[in-house]
């Protein structure tokens, strides 16, 4: 695969990951609003929002899963680089390719199995306790984020191995993002 084509593959993935992360942040923010509304309902009217705990669990799980691909694109997942500082850049890049490949295996497995879990739970007819909402939804919504991070990690693994991609600065990047 040439540099150009790999870049072309990554660009839509980046756009998608960016959109996912924004949606994830929004979901967490909506959970915060829901919680505050529930507190207000409890304090002012004596009635909290029914099923607020279930909705919080659902919203936060969704939010986190949507945030995973963006973190992988930005190299936010912590690595230890102390023992490999003396290595030459190409060797380090190959190691990073292996690391990205293992991330792809890890997240790909989880994406696939979580989707399978959605089918099992749907077949069993499981629901949530208060709202009676179908349980499979809680499983199914996690799969897209997990699948996207697996895909991004796979593309990174190929690109890093070929030398057509650079590993984004790790760890510190977390701080930079926070600080910008």
């Amino acid at each position: 695969m040439s540099t150009v084509r790999l870049g072309r593959v990554l660009r839509p993935l980046r756009t998608l990951a960016h959109a996912f992360a924004l949606l994830g942040g929004l979901a967490a923010f909506l959970v915060a609003m829901l919680t505050v509304a529930s507190i207000a309902g409890r304090v002012l009217a004596g009635t909290p929002i029914s099923g607020d705990v279930e909705l919080t669990q659902f919203g936060v799980a969704l939010a986190i899963s949507l945030c995973l691909p963006w973190a992988q694109l930005h190299g936010a997942n912590i690595i230890v680089d102390f023992f490999t500082q003396k290595l030459r850049a190409p060797a380090r890049r190959r190691l990073d390719a292996v690391g990205a490949l293992l991330m792809a295996v890890f997240c790909g497995l989880l994406a696939w199995r979580t989707a399978a879990g959605a089918f099992s739970v749907a077949a069993a007819g499981e629901t949530t306790m208060i709202l009676g909402a179908p349980m499979w939804i809680s499983y199914a919504v996690l799969a897209p984020g997990l699948a996207l991070i697996a895909l991004i990690a796979l593309v990174q693994a190929i690109g890093l191995w070929q030398g057509t991609l650079e590993q984004p600065a790790h760890a510190a990047e977390v701080g930079m993002q926070v600080a910008k």
């Binding site: 009635t47 909290p48 029914s50 099923g51 279930e54 306790m129």
Partner: peptide, 26 residues
């Protein structure tokens, strides 16, 4: 009436609602 009560099962959730309490699951 109006008490917020933690319901341990789906049935108690329904029971509490029919008795006039507000069931909360956690």
């Amino acid at each position: 009436k109006g008490l917020k009560m933690r319901a341990p099962t789906r049935m108690t959730n329904k029971l509490l609602a029919s008795l006039g309490a507000t069931p909360v699951a956690m």
